[in-house]
């Protein structure tokens, strides 16, 4: 059982309602599911297909395209070390080598205690701060070997649990559109007129 729970179904329906076509909500919903379960399960994909009105195969096709979705359990903390050019120029290779020794797993592996999954990552858009890494998509910049050791120790001791949620949670703040403020999405075929403010007069 890893269909969305009641609260998440409510959130899911709220998200779906924002799009002119339900399938558009698929990627946000996959995140929601991964947030609930830590990874994407088979049942979850069936459920999401039902929610947005597509086949499970279509959900599977979309989900497997994107690297953030995992189909098997990963560690509580996913440590992504960037290895693209700027980071590589600034020593990412050595950092990865060190990380493998520190955690006792090869890149791609998960520690026996299920705490850490170490992975190669591509450019994280923090090139001036190379070498960089992300723990569950939270950045660490200009990471030295001792920075890395301290990070792992802090994660183990729970010191960073406020800042870094467990794997699956990306953004902890959701967009909420108040019912009285939202315009609402309409299917494109039903919106066939120029918006009212395009009437040649100032809006204010």
């Amino acid at each position: 059982m890893s269909r969305l729970n009641e609260a998440n179904i409510k959130t899911a329906l709220e998200i779906i309602a924002r799009y002119p076509r339900p399938k558009s909500a698929l990627i946000p919903l996959l995140h929601l599911s991964q947030e609930q379960n830590g990874f994407i399960t088979r049942d979850a994909m069936v459920h999401l297909g039902e929610l947005v009105g597509v086949t499970s195969a279509e959900v599977y096709g979309t989900a497997t395209f994107y690297e953030m979705f995992r189909f098997e359990p990963v560690g509580k903390y996913l440590v992504n070390i960037c290895g693209t050019m700027s980071c590589a120029l600034m020593g990412a290779g050595d950092l990865m080598h060190h990380a493998e020794h520190k955690l006792g797993v090869k890149a791609g592996g998960t520690t026996a205690d299920g705490m850490f999954t170490l992975a190669h990552a591509e450019c994280q858009a923090a090139c001036t701060e190379a070498p960089t890494l992300q723990v569950n998509y939270r950045f660490r910049y200009k990471v030295t070997n001792s920075d890395f050791d301290a990070l792992i120790d802090d994660l183990k001791s729970g010191k960073l649990s406020d800042e870094i949620p467990s794997h699956g949670v990306v953004a902890r703040i959701r967009q909420r559109i108040p019912a009285d403020r939202g315009v609402g999405a309409v299917a494109p075929e039903l919106a066939t007129e120029n918006p009212v403010w395009m009437d040649g007069k100032a809006a204010l």
Binding site: R18, Y19, S24, I27, P28, L30, H31, F65, Y66, E67, M68, F69, E122, C123, V170, A171, Q175, R176, I177, P178, D180, R181, G182, V183, G184, A185, P195, V196, W197, A203, L204
Partner: peptide, 28 residues
């Protein structure tokens, strides 16, 4: 949204538009 800058009748005008936050999942 709460302050009336996005959504229905922005700043009290006839201009109404939703901004929907969407996010990806890792694909350059």
């Amino acid at each position: 949204y709460a302050a009336g800058y996005v959504g229905k009748n922005i700043l009290g005008s006839k201009f109404s538009v939703d901004i929907v936050l969407h996010w990806g999942a890792g694909a350059y």
